[in-house]
Design a binder for these strands. Sequence first.
DNA 1: CTTCTAATTGAACAATTGTTCATATATGCA
DNA 2: TGCATATATGAACAATTGTTCAATTAGAAG
Lengths: 195, 195
Amino acid sequence: MARKTGSHADITGPLVRKAAISLIARHGFAAVTMRQIAAEVGIQAGALYLYTPDKQTLLFDLMHDHLADLLVTVLAEPMLDTPTERLEAFCKFHIRYHLKRPESVFIANMELRNLEPDNFKKVEDQRRQYEAYLASILEAGQLAKDFKVPDCKLATMAIIAMLTGVNTWYQDGGRLTQERVERIYWNMVRRAVGA
Amino acid sequence: MARKTGSHADITGPLVRKAAISLIARHGFAAVTMRQIAAEVGIQAGALYLYTPDKQTLLFDLMHDHLADLLVTVLAEPMLDTPTERLEAFCKFHIRYHLKRPESVFIANMELRNLEPDNFKKVEDQRRQYEAYLASILEAGQLAKDFKVPDCKLATMAIIAMLTGVNTWYQDGGRLTQERVERIYWNMVRRAVGA
DNA sequence: CTTCTAATTGAACAATTGTTCATATATGCA
DNA sequence: TGCATATATGAACAATTGTTCAATTAGAAG
């Protein structure tokens, strides 16, 4: 039965997620203890089990929810007319979206091997869907002879790796603004696909 | 005093390293126990301490030695005449070298946060040197007007991320040979830098 | 053979792990 | 006010952790 009013749990639950994201991104899932997460929230370790059935589910939920939001958001972007415009929008979206939540991105990329087989399959499928979205843009551009890509699958992996790599070095207030980074990367991608 | 003949330790030592690499790549440093490593080698956990002072040093040695070998090897490559030739050689070298030791590469990329601060600094510096090698090629090409790169630092990070990404999906005996992958990626890099 | 050292065992250590649960406190509703 | 439920404690659990070390075995040198 759903609660009507905002209870304490509705506040603490998100706090647990936030603490877990921060700690796991910094130290890795296996290195973070339930007691550390609890301490960050300001509760005892036992109370965590009011918000998650176990540690593994907590990790899976973080990764699954992150990727689910990524998919929903990218699919909600307005569909532009030409493959080139769509590729530009994708590149800039990917950089912007990932730079806004670096901790979740880090976890989603690094903690795959700590997922139990069933959970791993689900998360892997979400990644596959996201890659398929980019691949479809490349294939459309290839078909329309807007792009010259020798292999769409390879180009997909290359572009995603390249764009996600921004997260490893970018820092706010650094030498380049985010908009400038987006433009430079889009230019490299554009030329790489021959558009 | 150096031993003249190959002792048992000269054999077991490398076995410990190999077992550690395999296990850490699969499960992550924090999730692997000294007892697991020992079991893989076929000895007791206590005997590991004949080959490493502690778990942290074992990890650092794996990462440090991997990157040291990477640096020595890339610097030993013959220096070609033009920046374009050098960039092509670098791209193909990077893919080939990394595909040959995927487990060490995985560890070097994923376990940075499990290094103690001093060890982290050393490994980070090795990475910086490798990046500087590629950056110098891009800067030379830019100066010679062979490349059109809006930002050499960004292009360096983009290219390395893109090339290293091959390790996440390539499998021997798959759809594409390694040589074909090298050529396709080099083509994308070449166009990305405007060569 | 004996002697010396290198290599290894196996038990032990204190600390920490994820998780459970009886008990207590707080909160919202009648 | 009191009752019911949601939320939290804190102690306890067995299992496991990295590491140490006295005792033992193996191997090479003389």
